[in-house]
Design a protein around this nucleic acid. Structure first.
Lengths: 332, 332
DNA sequence: TTGTAAGCGTTATCAG
DNA sequence: CTGATAACGCTTACAA
């Protein structure tokens, strides 16, 4: 094709990739023809010859809000550094996700999979072909993972019980839905046990979208005896719940205290400010991308990033962040 | 590779693509070996030979909320029908988007580009190589486009002025940010002109995320004289604004009326219900994907899908949808 | 029905 | 510094 420039394909290849092994004159001539014909090297040709795609895959459940947005941006910016293209695949919790993931695996050099989006079997299968890192969950025996510390939900729960004296708490989130929510629910339960307070028998099993928070409001507030405080699995549901509470004429935190998880931008913007847990989503993403770039060592292991509580007005604190009561170490 | 099954590559190819031209016995033997070795045909080999990727690209600005989620799901489900894989590319409004789009263009057979994400020049360049359809904006001379009717914002504005008697309205949205918002702002202005009411000199120029609505609340409510009604460019900002208003102790719609655009699930779940405009996002996406599958005819043209107002409580209507005052046809 | 061989666009190796 | 030539893994005539 570009040999219409009167040179060999090898020379075109060298020029198009900026090799120094070409004489200035020839380079110029080739560049001119490339320009004229709007030539772009074929990715399949290149991939076939190099046995690599120059691309990474990122698989996640859906696009509900800032968490994934931040995750994706972080991942992409890191991949940019290493010159990798990123292909996004949103599962939407659909049944055909496994097939799509397998297909994607044939087009990329490595894949980051958000926990809870793909079946165990598919993850194993993909890991047999290319590098895999699990985000926000634990890796199987063969892959690496990066996640954040969910136990801070326990600190927050203890804060609600010990510092504010709430006794009837609720938890909004679906523990079976993702490792993150599982861990948060368990931390919520553990804090109750530790404080000698009876936890609710069940969580309010809903998703992580803001609309789920609005539904939670209906379930918790339109009946008999609302809880004094609600620990939500993430900020989005917390804000949905807040909207529901305020819309019903309730005051936050006087009538009902609410906490979230993520510390998304809205958390600081609403009134009262949302008490939550800050997790380093961007670092989660960049760490994952970095791991994916180099061949994984036998066991890169499970990296767990730190998180920290952020106390604002919605739990009953004055609207300015402080730290919650430190864990006492006792059994309560 | 799979010829270790003792057959020719041609036979493997035939079997792996389900050709009928193979004897049952051979087919079984090959299938067994394929299974054993976990063989998957290489995409570059296939793409190289077939001169197609079996994939479509979808480029959009970011992932803030239900609009893009719905858009992507619709697009993917349609692509699934035609057996195409979908590659997502989020621009995040970054400068290097053009380069990524060009790269993506080399890996897919067609590309849907959401308006306002990619430079004109890059769109032209991509369109020279593969099929391109613009979403939520007008196509250049060479490509097709699919968008929705934004003029309904004018109907909503007229409703606020004529039916509810509001005189001091505000508009939240950045008209220069996207064709959609441009059209909505212009419709807002036109309705004022038509009704003989003075519109605000400028819109509140903010983005489309919920946090932008919260910022709008600060700008509009924390000072002298708040507007009586606010028309927001989309539901997310409307909800952010609502949250801000309620959090400040204001009542909606008594103290301030608020409208949105999209009719996302939250709109019906909040109290009061959010008055908004329903647009067929899913149809927008499926139509685009369908157009992309077949070679575009010389001018598939600009498809515009219908939208309709949805009146709920946040504008002052009783919380149950009705239709707004019909356009009179006069010049006001 | 099955195998052989050419070709897809690139890179890498090796001569010249 | 440059050009042949052989891969790369697959599909598709064409031949057997």
């Amino acid at each position: 094709m570009a040999e219409k420039a009167g040179v060999s394909p090898a020379t075109v290849s060298r020029v198009s990739r900026g090799s120094t092994q070409v004489s200035p004159e020839l380079r110029d001539r080739v560049l001119r023809v490339i320009e004229e014909h709007g030539y772009r090297p074929s990715h399949f040709g290149r991939a076939l010859a190099e046995k690599r795609h120059g691309a990474l895959g990122l698989v996640f459940p859906g696009l509900s809000g800032p968490y994934f947005s931040e995750l994706i941006q972080g991942f992409e910016s890191e991949a940019l550094e290493t010159g990798d293209q990123v292909f996004l695949l949103a599962s939407h919790y659909r049944a055909d996700t496994d097939a799509k993931v397998l297909d994607l695996a044939a087009r990329v050099d490595g894949m980051a999979i958000h926990a809870g989006t793909v079946s165990e079997a598919a993850v194993e299968e993909v890991a047999r072909q290319i590098r895999v890192v699990i985000m926000a969950g634990e890796a199987g025996p063969a892959q690496a993972s990066v996640s954040t510390d969910n136990s801070t939900v326990g600190d927050l729960t203890r804060h609600l019980i010990v510092d504010h004296g709430y006794r009837r708490l609720a938890f909004v989130g679906h523990p079976e839905g993702s490792p993150d929510v599982t861990a948060r629910w368990l931390a919520f339960l553990a804090a109750h046990r530790e404080a000698g307070v009876e936890p609710p028998a069940d969580p309010v099993r809903l998703g992580l979208a803001q609309s789920d928070g609005a539904i939670a409001a209906r379930m918790l507030l339109d009946e008999g005896r609302p809880p004094e405080a609600v620990v939500c699995a993430n900020d989005e549901t917390a804000l949905g719940l807040t909207l529901g509470a305020l819309g019903r004429g309730l005051r936050v935190p006087e009538d009902i205290a609410i906490t979230g998880f993520d510390d998304m931008p809205m958390a600081a913007l609403v009134r009262p400010g949302l008490t939550t847990v800050r997790q380093p989503v961007r670092e989660l993403a960049t760490t994952t991308a970095r791991l994916l770039h180099a061949p994984l060592t036998q066991k890169d292991g499970d990296t767990v990033l730190d998180t920290e509580p952020v106390l604002r007005g919605s739990c009953g604190c004055p609207d300015g962040a402080t730290r919650p009561t430190a864990r006492t170490g006792g059994d309560g």
